[in-house]
Amino acid sequence: MGDHLVRAEEFEKKAEKKLNGWGIFGSKYEDAADLLEKAANSYKLAKSWDQAGKAYLKLADCHLKSDSKHDAANAYAEAAKCYKKVDTNEAASCLERAVNIFCEIGRLNMAARYYKEIAEYYEADQKIDQAIAYYEKAAEFFQNEEVTTSANQCNLKVAQYASQLEQYEKAIKIYEDIARHSLGNNLLKYGVKGHLLNAGMCHLCKADVVSITNALEKYQDLDPTFTGTRECKFLSDLAGAIDEEDIAKFTDVVKEFDSMTPLDSWKTTMLLRVKEKLKAKELEEDDLT
């Protein structure tokens, strides 16, 4: 590891010498770029991630000065990979610079991909607001490039986190839009009932029985096959339990569904919120009596 570090520093010094010297027709930037790439790789082998990231940033600068924008964007992306191991914010900043260049040269699919990656960085750091913002950007770019599946994946992340932040209307709109657009796609239509279930659960979290009842009618009009699904019955039974303010019935409905179709953590969280509201309402009524 020590040898790699020494080698990296030597390559970097040679690159600096090239940059500070005279060069013909920009060749000094190309020569320095070769040396900086070797330096960055050696720093990576030495697991000196911060130094590797800095070397890639210098490499990006060389590529920009020799008007190799695509190479510069790739260097920023490589810098991000290194910084990801030590500094998420710096990694996101590097990817943002890569995105700006990819937008400039018309590589919007790459821009979308890196916006998604930035979102994942923030997601891993539990910075949910930033994650939502970048998933939204990624979704927009993917949609513009007609990469529907990737756009949907990003939008579903937005809906997931929006609902966790109790932004239920925002989440509902996303789930319903994806369901609606998926109906005409043979590959995506099988996921429709899941999206409608998620939208319905967000309605339940609003603790508005009229809202969920109206939503169920709308969903069955949207997709007549939804009527006979376990998901539709689940939502309908939950709405009934909420309307009757029957916590035991609510719990039984959840247990029955979970035994057939195991609930993921998001659904469990949403259902616990609904149950807590039911309990609070019950206590409130007990206090009144």
Rank of each mutant, 00 (worst) to 15 (best):
M201Y: 12
D125Y: 08
A75H: 03
T269A: 14
F141P: 00
C205N: 15
G200E: 10
A199R: 08
N74C: 13
R180C: 06
E37D: 05
Q164D: 07
I172Q: 15
I178C: 06
K157A: 09
F25T: 07
K127M: 11
K44N: 11
A80F: 02
A119N: 05
A111E: 04
L197N: 09
E145T: 12
S163M: 05
K275H: 13
R180G: 01
R97G: 09
M260R: 14
V158E: 02
V253Y: 06
W22Q: 03
H63F: 15
E285I: 03
D221S: 15
F234K: 03
E96P: 01
K170S: 15
A75V: 07
A75T: 01
E166W: 12
K137M: 09
S163T: 12
Y83Q: 01
L35P: 01
K38C: 04
A39W: 00
L216A: 05
V253Q: 10
L235V: 10
W266Q: 12
I24Q: 09
N186W: 14
K54R: 14
T261G: 00
K193I: 07
A52F: 10
L95M: 12
A32T: 00
L108E: 08
L64R: 15
A151P: 04
K127C: 07
A162I: 04
K38N: 07
Y115C: 08
I24H: 03
E78P: 02
A60Y: 05
E245Y: 11
L196S: 02
N186M: 14
I212M: 11
A55C: 02
D34Y: 00
E96K: 14
E169I: 10
L5P: 02
Q143F: 04
A171E: 07
E78L: 15
A73C: 07
L238S: 07
A40M: 02
K58E: 05
G21A: 10
D87H: 06
L45H: 08
A46S: 12
F226H: 08
M1K: 08
S265C: 04
K189S: 13
N185K: 15
N214F: 00
G26R: 11
F250G: 05
L59R: 02
G23I: 00
T227Y: 09
A75N: 06
D208T: 12
Y121H: 12
